[in-house]
Amino acid sequence: MIFFETRQVSKRYAHHLALDKVSISVPQQSIYGLLGPNGAGKTSLIRIINQITAPDEGELLLNGKPMKPSDTAVIGYLPEERGLYKKMKVGEQALYLAQLKGISKRDARKRLGEWFEKFEITAWWNRKVEELSKGMQQKIQFIVTVIHQPDMLIFDEPFSGFDPINVNLLKDEIINLRNNGSTILFSTHNMASVEELCSHITLINSSRKIIEGRVTDVKNEHRTHAYMISMMDLHKNPVEFLPQRFIVSDSRTENDGTVNFTIQADGSEKPNELIEYFARQGVIKGFSEKMPSMNDIFIKLVNQTKPK
């Protein structure tokens, strides 16, 4: 079920088209990756979704209905450019930001208490923000983003500035939030975290949507038909028995006679057919398809769609 949609959204700044008829559909309870190189239009799109700016054309739908100004209350937004009032105390500031999201002071205090405990920063409640490390400030920003338990969360580069331990903490929390019913829109350049977290992605380049879909579908679509195979008791070298159209590389023979090699097929056989074929040549110890990484797909697609 689609929770959030943009339809043919365009945004033009003075001399520059930031978004050109971009339509995306974000399924409910998905973690949806919004990808694209710098300046592609991701932040413009996110700001439109948050109703910080208005689109010139197109519409936004939330649960199938056109979005109203009051709908920002069900969105939690962690912008890429984020900060806190330096001179204000941590707790006071968290309370203020939480109340701006429309929750009462009492609820805010209670929920903040729980989150502060979870992130082990309770001791900092009465300290000034300027005394905090960047990572700690990021934690507070994360907390105030999710404090009103919004149906949709938008994270723009959420992991920048975190150490690996805190990145994991945050990933766990993001997954938790999804499991508890939130739909998450997630913009990043970090492809590893996309593979780890996202169920769906969209790629924007030069103001246009290039591709959208499930991560597995995208990967399938861009598979390169490369396989890593490991065999024993081969009666011949793979290069000799394989047809010319298969390109063999990285062939290596271990001490026990195991041969590891990679083949590049052209996609005319299914993996199962390949396995049958190889089974006739010897004993298969290992067979796996080399799937493209999101990183490879990203680079390939961005280069393909480069404006001339």
Binding site: N50, I52, T72, I75, Y77, L78, P79, E81, R82, G83, L84, Y85, K86, L97, L100, K101, G102, Q141, V144, T145
Partner: peptide
């Protein structure tokens, strides 16, 4: 200017 250089402004205008 403080809100702008602190980068808190976008956090706030997502709620107001």
């Amino acid at each position: 200017i403080e809100e702008k250089t602190n980068r808190i402004v976008e956090v706030i205008i997502s709620s107001v």
